[in-house]
Structure formats: structure tokens, C-alpha cells
Nucleic acid binder design. Structure first.
Lengths: 283, 283
DNA sequence: GGGTATTTGTCCGTATGTATT
DNA sequence: AAATACATACGGACAAATACC
């Protein structure tokens, strides 16, 4: 047996899909039709289709049939300088009006820091932290889950509004600078891909077999003393998001050629704390 | 039927794995043992194991058994300012000596630009480009595939060494500045997750069912005129790499507190063109 | 190297359940 | 309610990969 039969069938179907004979959204033949077409048993046909399904090439819908997967237009998430440099400095073209992002009211919890959180905030494991969790939507469809952790010490020193389950209108970066003279001078983003958990599968309506990965962004922000002041963890379904980082002088996404970005010291202005990433649809 | 039997079995096994009863690397019982333990048919047991395998929780090895997957230590890929700002400015701790990266000799091709390449380089589709492809290894294990595209115009104007199938020792950024006075002033990285293709599965020795995604980084670099001068596409298996982006003043990964990064205008120094990402092992 | 036992992989057939039209 | 189509579950047989003697 050179290649297993179900793989030969899968490869044949893959060829038809990639050649465009079966465009995205098209319905494939039924399992029974394939059974006679390929002279194979139904289970073998199902193995072939499952093979393609795991790779995200097709999806099956009970009672309806099997369909060529539609490629999702990726949402572009900006990480790095172009974003948090202050909204005023952004070329307007990078913030289109059409897609509207909404955030849920934050839910606030007092937690003991798990190991990854403690490590990023340089706290002993188990230390008390404030967690502010929000769900984010684009055009009412779930887009990301976001949790920000603050050391409890900030609250003790007077930043009591971190405990309020409501949006801090001026942004927590501004609030912490006004209240405690704690200024955000930079941050580090770490992006990792990992399998989705049950919560994420439910919130994002992902296929239940967990084949769609999750992009998890840890944003650790530092104050003027070089100490971590917050950790924001954002998660996005990996199949519908891209992440862009601009460094140095980069022309805008739009047509005009902007002036090279002046290398201002990066301050904490802007809405960096409310949304760790400004987004833009592409194409 | 509340939940399908194979899912109940899978959930039971998942619980044992997450509770640590079955540590990473441990061998699970054989299908036959599970068959009696759960009083189910072999195919049902296999469905349960396949469900876990798609999620990367276990892996099966013919003739040997089923094993709890070992989580790979992620390699950290730096994107953004900290890297291309010039190697001399890097805290030494970020470039550990232990893991050694090797690159293959570049293979050079003259190609007609596919749509994504043409779009990034702002060329008409089908325009001629030079492609320089390299395979990269860490400690002799495959780590990334990298292809850089240059507009053919650069060669016509005199950068003929782009056609040589050999490493350009001083770096192509330096070479293009010396030869054509084309200076790299910035770049944009775009990271996308997509399924692995057959080539990538073979090179990286990924599980053949394509459940491991690929992180694809498009780095478009711009010259002093704001025109794209090169496009580097790097691909990494998504299950064993993290990506970090530092913005503003960020303390080094090590213990010492470095001086806040001075906002120098970003030049094209350093090995940015040979390796689009400097790496560091973490933990 | 060869042979054998073990274990997973492939393939078939059948019956019944569940979701959708 | 009926028909259609995929999902679950069982059974069996043989192939292929691995380990061990």
C-alpha cells in the first residue's frame, strides 16, 4: 500500500479545492456519493474528510453536508510602537471607522497570582493581584478575551479605582500616573500559540475539536523605575487575526507617504491600557 | 446520549493528564487495555485518543503505544526594535551562547512575483524578483525556513551579488547601502498563523495530519525613500516558538537594569538581513 | 539477520442516533 | 412526518511499525 486509501482520496479532494474546482463555501458530494465514486467504504470516506477537516480545509455540518471552508479575512492587530505612541500620532488611515470594537464592562477579581503572572510582575507566587477582565467584540462578534493584572500594592498606595468594576475613562495608564506618579515607559509583548481551552471554544464559537489555536499575547508594562506595573493577557483565535509590528520609519498602510516617525521617548499616553492593541481590517 | 462515549473517555483521560497522574512522556494503556477498562469497542477508544491527539495532548507511535505529549520549550523570537537596533546595543543576556543557530547556504532563484510578494514590494504582479532561500537550524534541529525577495531592479542597478548563491558576509542591508546608497530605515512585521503545507511538515518533522500550525512572519523593509526594498518571509512551527516585541524602555531579560534605550534613529546596521530574528531560549 | 509478539494503522461492514431540511 | 446527511458505536480482518529474543 503506497499511500493509504483515505489519504489518496483526501489528496484528490484537496487538489480539487486548491485548483478552485471546489470554491470556498461549496458543498462537497455526500459520503454516499463519494462511496461509489471512489469505490471505498463509508468509513474510509469519513477518514479522508476528517483528515481535511483537521487541517481546516473543509467543515462538516450534520444534516447538511460537507463544505469547503471559507477563509476568514484576518483582523490586523497592531503590536509595538505605532500603537501606543499616542493616538494623535497615528495616521488616521490605520484606524478605519467601519469595524467597531466594543468592550464589556470589566469584571474585577482579587486573586492570588499564578506562576506565570507572578513571574511577569516579579512578585512571589501567590501574592495578591487585581485582575480586570473584559470581553471584546468587533461588530458584535467575539474577538478577544483580555485580562489585566495589577499588583495589589498599587491599590494599597491609593489607586483604589482599580477595584471598581467599570471602565476607567482616562485609561489606567493615565490614572496611575495622576494618582501615584507611576509612569509607563515601555512594555514587552510576548506572543505564543497554544490550543484553545473549553472557555475559549465556547466564547469564540470555535470548532469543538480544538484544532483552531489561540494566540496569547502577554503585555508586560514597566514604569519609570523599571518595575513591571501591569500584565495584560489577550487571547485571539489564531485563524482570523494577524499581528503587525512596525519598527523605525514605515510608510502608513494607506497611500500617502507620512513623515518618518520622530523618535520621541515613548510615553504612556493614549488608550494603551484599555485596549492593548488597536486594530485595523485589511484588504 | 448526553455526551458521546468517546468524548467521555477522552475527558476522563484528559483529566488524568491535567491532574498529573499521567505526566508528560508517560505511556498510556494500550487500546486493548482501554477496551476492557471502559467497556467500549476498539474504534471508540481510538476515537477518544484521536480527539486528544488533534488537541496535541497525546501522540501515538505505531508499534509502541500512546504517550502524553511533552510540551516543547519555546524558542523566543525577537521582533521589533530590540533586534535590529544594532547588535552592539543588545544586552548580552539576550543572546545566550548555548543554542547555536546555523543557516544553510542560500539558494537563489529568479522568480515572477506572486500576488502577496508583489503587494508587499509594491510591484505589478508577475514582475521579476530575486528570491534567496535559507533553512535555519538550532543545534542541528530544523527551526525555520526563510525566503527573502528583492526587486530585480536592485540587481539591474548594480547589486549583482544578490544573485550569488552564497552568504553576503557584511549583510545585505550593509551591501545595498554601500553599493546603491539604498538605506534601510524601518520595517514592518506581519505575523499570521496558518496550516502547515507538505514541505513544512517534512522539513520540521511535524505530525503529518497538519494539526501543528505555522507562524509566518512577513518582514517588509523600507528604504529612505519610503519604498519597500525587500520582503523576508520566515516560517516557524507555532508549537515551539514565542515572539516578543519590546517597545520603549524595557528592562532586559536578565537581572541587571539596563539604561533606558536611547531613541536613536534606527539604521540598517546589524545582521538584520541575514536573520530576521535574533533568538533566545527561555526558562 | 530473522522471527515473533505487541501495538497502532487501515479498511471494511452494519446498525442506530441526531441534526437539518 | 419523512427524507437526507453526518455522528456515534460496534464488530472483524489484515497491514505496518516497533521491540525483543
Amino acid at each position: 500500500m503506497a499511500r493509504p486509501l483515505y489519504r489518496q482520496i483526501a489528496d484528490d479532494l484537496r487538489g480539487q479545492i486548491e485548483a478552485g474546482q471546489l470554491p470556498p463555501g461549496a458543498r462537497l458530494a455526500t459520503e454516499d456519493e463519494f462511496r461509489t465514486r471512489y469505490n471505498a467504504s463509508r468509513n474510509t470516506i469519513r477518514d479522508a474528510i476528517k483528515w481535511l477537516a483537521v487541517q481546516g480545509l473543509v467543515e462538516t455540518r450534520p444534516g447538511q453536508g460537507t463544505f469547503v471552508a471559507v477563509k476568514l479575512e484576518p483582523v490586523v492587530v497592531n503590536l509595538g510602537a505605532a500603537v501606543d505612541n499616542g493616538a494623535a500620532a497615528l495616521p488616521i488611515a490605520e484606524v478605519p471607522a467601519s469595524p467597531r470594537m466594543e468592550s464589556s464592562i470589566p469584571s474585577v477579581e482579587i486573586q492570588s497570582a499564578a506562576a506565570p503572572v507572578a513571574a511577569e510582575l516579579r512578585l512571589p507566587e501567590g501574592e495578591t493581584v487585581v485582575s480586570r477582565h473584559q470581553r471584546q467584540f468587533i461588530d458584535s462578534t467575539p474577538w478577544s478575551l483580555q485580562t489585566t493584572f495589577y499588583p495589589m500594592d498599587l491599590v494599597r498606595r491609593g489607586a483604589s479605582r482599580l477595584l471598581a468594576a467599570e471602565v476607567i475613562a482616562e485609561g489606567t495608564v493615565q490614572y496611575l500616573r495622576d494618582t501615584l506618579n507611576v509612569t509607563q515607559v515601555g512594555w514587552r509583548d510576548k506572543l505564543t500559540i497554544r490550543p484553545a481551552d473549553a472557555n475559549e471554544i465556547a466564547f469564540f464559537s470555535l470548532p469543538p475539536d480544538g484544532r483552531v489555536g489561540i494566540a496569547e499575547v502577554f503585555r508586560t508594562a514597566y514604569d519609570q523605575a523599571g518595575a513591571p506595573m501591569r500584565l495584560t493577557v489577550s487571547v485571539f483565535p489564531a485563524d482570523r487575526n494577524s499581528f503587525v509590528i512596525s519598527t523605525g520609519a514605515v510608510p502608513g498602510l494607506a497611500l500617502e507617504s507620512p513623515a518618518p516617525r520622530s523618535p520621541d521617548p515613548v510615553g504612556g499616553q493614549g488608550p494603551a491600557d484599555r485596549t492593548p492593541a488597536i486594530f485595523a481590517l485589511e484588504r
